[in-house]
Design a protein around this nucleic acid. Structure first.
Length: 425
RNA sequence: GUGGGUAUAGCUUAGUUGGUUAAAGCGCCAGUUUGUGGCACUGGAGACCGUCGGUUCGACUCCGACUAUCCACCCCA
């Protein structure tokens, strides 16, 4: 297969055999978000590169080595968005949406791009569903977002997911924690992996979620962020937990969930799949980011949100054997025995389609017999055969393909009503 | 970026110690006489065996590089 007929690395076609699954999932997500009061926002595929340098953080892997950055013809540096939040924040600020009143609740499904080595559930183009609440500092906002995520998974039929939460405090309490961590890990410096020795200076918090087994062993005895929360942050976390308990949402506190960037504050959460041995992250990036909006030039505004990768979600649903409703079946196939009948068939099909029935006719000039085979192949519910005889007698037989039951239909005035009745049964 | 596996029709695969026109199932297209499908039978289309180079009289088969793909790490959705 040559380059011309090959999708670019890390990208994927969603074929008709699968697209209905996407429709199903996206539909549920948007509808559920709607019930929580989130309105859809659509942002462009690319933004000014500076936005992500600033918003995602230019010391992250994403910005340092994974962005699709290019110059347009006027020499502007643009970047395909590597995640959804920052673009949404930009749009909020640009259009002054916060002036419409708070809270501002937005949802989106958007393609994201990261130059990474593809593997299972990881693509260079992937689709992210996200929700963001702006202007709400209350723990109720955190809880509402988590609650939405929980219901979503339920609606999709996903089980064996566990919710893990943590609080990483505000910049003030984090400073104390960071100091304590540094002091602690300093003692174990020579046992840490090489990336973690680097982290020790730049970002000791990231050592806490290092996957290296040696590091993890050390982390076990490391100080816990929760012990360093200031009074306000502690109360906030306590309230979030309270809301969750009151809503009967199970959660586990995982002190190892941290975030590398400064604008993340307080609540962080993840949904991990416990069905298979290797815990896979389904919904990362969930949490509060009270510092972000100010970081990219807006007024200090609290915000919470989360993102889900749709590819991963569908993968998970498949691994759990969740049945996604099959796409709509053809209601009726109108077979035609000759050219005249064929001309009229389109009109009849049009009439039915206007009433929202899924009707098909022969458009490849097959023999009648082959048309019937085709009707069977596409799993049509009903069959209508039209020819000279039918038009001279002004009536035709409509057959239920599964039962073989036949109905006589008049082809003139009451065609639609009669057909509708049979089809709707 | 690091490590490992794989590469033959649309799909799933076979291909014997290198030896002529590369095989099967499924799918696709059509036929099995006249206007009613599913089953069965018959036929047909469809592959420069991932690419390039090497070894050889001869390579789908052996060697090398590249590319793609899958899996894991990293990171994350």
């Amino acid at each position: 297969m040559n380059l011309l007929t090959k999708a670019a690395r890390g990208t994927q076609d969603v074929l008709p055999a699968d697209s209905y699954k996407w429709q199903f999932v996206q539909d549920i997500m948007l509808k559920e978000a709607e019930l929580y009061g989130f309105k859809e926002i659509r942002t462009p595929a690319f933004e000014h590169t500076e936005l992500f340098d600033r918003g995602v953080g230019d010391d992250t892997d994403i910005v340092q080595k994974e962005m699709y950055t290019f110059n347009d013809k006027a020499g502007r540096s643009l970047t395909l968005k590597p995640e959804g939040t920052v673009a949404a924040v930009r749009a909020v600020l640009e259009h002054g949406l916060l002036n419409d009143g708070i809270p501002l609740k937005l949802t989106y499904i958007t393609p994201c791009y990261r130059y990474e080595k593809p593997q299972s559930g990881r693509y260079r183009e992937f689709f992210q569903f996200g929700v963001e609440t702006f202007g709400a500092a209350s723990p109720a906002a955190d809880a509402e977002i988590i609650c939405l995520a929980t219901t979503l998974f339920e609606r999709l039929g996903i089980s064996n997911l566990s919710l893990e939460i943590n609080s990483i405090g505000c910049p003030e309490c984090r400073q104390a924690y960071r100091g304590a961590l540094k002091k602690f890990f300093e003692k174990h410096r020579e046992k840490l992996c090489s990336t973690c020795t680097d982290r020790l200076e730049k970002n000791p918090m990231r050592i806490v979620d290092c996957k290296n087994l040696e590091c993890q062993k050390i982390v076990e005895d490391a100080p816990n962020i929760i012990d360093f929360l200031c009074e306000d942050c502690e109360q906030h976390f306590k309230d979030v937990k309270n809301y969750l308990s009151e809503s009967k949402i199970d959660y586990k506190i995982n002190p190892k969930i941290v975030r590398g960037l400064d604008y993340y504050t307080r609540t962080v959460f993840e949904f991990v799949s416990s069905s298979d041995s290797n815990r896979s992250l389904v919904c990362g990036g969930g949490g509060r980011y009270d510092g972000l909006i100010e970081e990219i030039g807006g007024p200090a505004t609290p915000a919470v949100g989360f993102g889900i990768g749709i590819e991963r979600l569908i993968l998970l649903m498949q691994s759990q054997g969740i049945e996604i409703p099959k796409p709509k079946r053809c209601d009726i196939f109108i077979a035609t025995a000759d050219k005249t009948a064929q001309t009229k068939a389109l009109h009849l099909a049009k009439t039915l389609r206007e009433s929202s029935f899924y009707a098909e006719i022969d458009i490849v000039e097959r023999s009648l017999k082959t048309q019937l085979k085709y009707a069977d192949k596409i799993n049509a519910k009903f069959l209508l055969v039209l020819g000279e005889k039918e038009f001279s007698e002004k009536k035709a037989e409509m057959k239920n393909m599964a039962s073989g039951e036949k109905f006589i239909i008049n082809l003139d005035n009451d065609f639609l009503t009669k057909t509708k009745n049979i089809l709707s049964d």
